[in-house]
Design a protein around this nucleic acid. Structure first.
Lengths: 342, 342
DNA sequence: TTGTAAGCGTTATCAC
DNA sequence: GTGATAACGCTTACAA
């Protein structure tokens, strides 16, 4: 702001070329002689030129912006996903405008307005606040990650596979009864498949099972107290039986494990525990917890591939938008650690 | 891209006003009669107008962009800080362009180039990659968070205070010997004060102490193995004495606690443990860990206040940049939990 | 209260 | 290979 910017006009004057040629130096360098390229490079340096990409966007319509709306970064899953998405800058050079979506639908629509006003070329949504129908109405490429996505493209973990792997392991390990602990999950979001797979697998192998979907609460303390009740219930109800506990995330699994330790000072053979997410806590707990690892890097990469493809399509003279949303599933991996025998 | 954008020109034609008036409708609505405001509002709606803020930036030079460079989001500290910074959108309406800085100085300078090309008004740096001298040379307001900041403004936790609180608590709790476990910290970064305060406080109270600055390693496994050696060393060397262990972060504290449990199945009275950061692991560990809580929300808020003030200054006709960088310290809070007696 | 016209710093089109 | 010129969509003196 202090001194006026150096512009193509200045470079042009300084070198005796036209603005057009300066522009070409950046966008089609091969169309200049090497000699002239060097001449311009030198001038750029001497005048201390700095690009202004905003002017470029205005002229050619390509902002290279991608919007991201994420529910929070408190959960390791989200912060890791954001990291991986941001990392893709190295490959694609898209810049990311990031919003954390607290504050409900109105706020989130305000964020979207803002993003549209900055001419984002594409959008990545991890929050569950707005319906996919609403999101689709913005007419830009949108990828949903791990959420309801009827009308937009999506990339999700193959929750069914993951849950099946967990459940199968507990069955193979000769558990007498299997218990799945989770919050109440709406049927239309991907995570519901964890519940479905658990039930169907238990049924298929004729293993007794119980579904506990009563977890709720925001703070760790609340969760802990709830889990204590659940633990005591299970511990007395199935006393003497070998219990396979499959929890919907590693935080829950860790709490459950801590409760077991508080009572037994160890993990008795009577208990097997599996979490979900492969978040740090699963490795850092008093005993490393077996878990289902979501391949966050693969999800992020797939998301960007899908998105870039569609953003490129939009730049063609006659864009052919997708007829139907594409949905990709990424297989998670079972990470065996010490809470499911050795 | 599909259909051409609706522009002020269209609105102007449609309503019979000039482009200027349409512009004023957005920027100085009071200067129009209510009647005309409504007329324009109606037209906006009917034509389906969408703002183009990039054009506006080009015209008035105010991008409302702030760049953030963060080392990673793996550590809770950084992801929480990012969340808090992003949240400030509600107050200031600055948009954030976020880069994760892996890949060394060259990469980071490339990020900075990109940010400058998008005409960011200010910059927030959490990475340690570039010197404050280099950062200052960009001639835009820069705030460093918890890093070397000789030539730029900064906001940091009052590490000295925090460390002193931790050390004092251990002394008050009658520990026979105090041990501080940390990585090797360069003297010019804020975190070094934790070491200084520990030493000085121990000396002042004439309490025997030991400094172990040998921790290193990237993965949890590596850390764990290193910490095991450190633990065994301490456990035998100070057998029978009451040991106050102050670790430089909660991850280390948790590992140490787990090692104690592996050996003793409990936390013996002989041990007191304090971590740093108040990250989730401190609450979720086998026993909730006493820790020093950085006031991340306050740090983020202070950062934005400082930054906004300077960005506003830059917009004045005759900007008066700071003569000397401002450095703010935020006092951390001692969070007493179960690893320092009840 | 409203309008005219000249920018802002690029790129695109068409010519040479 | 290179250049003139008209966009891109909005803001901002300066006028009226």
């Amino acid at each position: 702001m202090a001194k006026k910017q150096v512009t193509f006009a200045d470079i042009a004057e300084y070198t005796g070329f036209s603005k057009t040629t300066i522009s070409r130096y950046f966008n089609h360098p091969d169309s200049l002689t090497l000699e002239n390229q060097e001449k311009i490079a030198k001038a750029l340096d001497e005048l201390g030129y700095r690009k202004n990409k905003l002017a470029r966007v205005l002229a050619n319509g390509k902002s290279e912006f991608v919007g991201i709306i994420v529910p929070n970064l408190y959960l390791h899953y989200y912060s890791e996903m954001l990291t991986q998405l941001l990392r893709s800058y190295s490959d694609y050079h898209y810049k990311f405008l990031v919003f954390v979506s607290d504050g409900g639908p109105e706020k989130e629509m305000q964020y979207l307005d803002e993003l549209m006003a900055y001419k984002i070329e594409g959008l990545i949504v991890l929050s569950h606040t707005l319906s996919s129908e609403k999101l689709a109405s913005y007419n830009i490429p949108v990828i949903a990650i791990e959420r309801e996505a009827e009308h937009i493209c999506s990339v999700t973990t193959d929750n069914y596979m993951g849950s099946m792997q967990a459940t199968s392991l507990l069955i193979r390990n000769q558990c007498d009864v299997l218990i799945h602990i989770n919050v109440h999950v709406p049927e239309n979001i991907p995570a519901y498949d964890r519940i479905r797979a658990f039930e169907e697998t238990c049924r298929e192998y004729h293993v007794p099972y119980e579904l506990n979907l009563n977890v709720s609460g925001d703070s760790y303390q609340e969760l802990f107290e709830q889990m204590r009740v659940i633990f005591q219930d299970i511990d007395s109800k199935y006393s003497g039986q070998k219990k396979g506990i499959f929890l919907s995330n590693d935080t829950y699994a860790n709490i459950f494990l801590n409760l077991i330790f508080q009572k037994y000072n160890c993990l008795p053979d009577e208990y097997q525990i599996i979490g979900f997410d492969n978040s740090p806590i699963a490795a850092e707990s008093i005993i490393p917890i077996t878990t289902i690892g979501q391949q966050i890097d693969v999800i992020a990469q797939t998301t960007m591939e899908l998105l870039v493809e569609q953003m490129n399509e939009m730049k063609k003279r006659k864009p052919a938008p997708l007829q139907k949303p594409i949905h990709k599933k990424i297989t998670p991996v079972l990470i065996r650690r010490q809470t499911t025998g050795d």
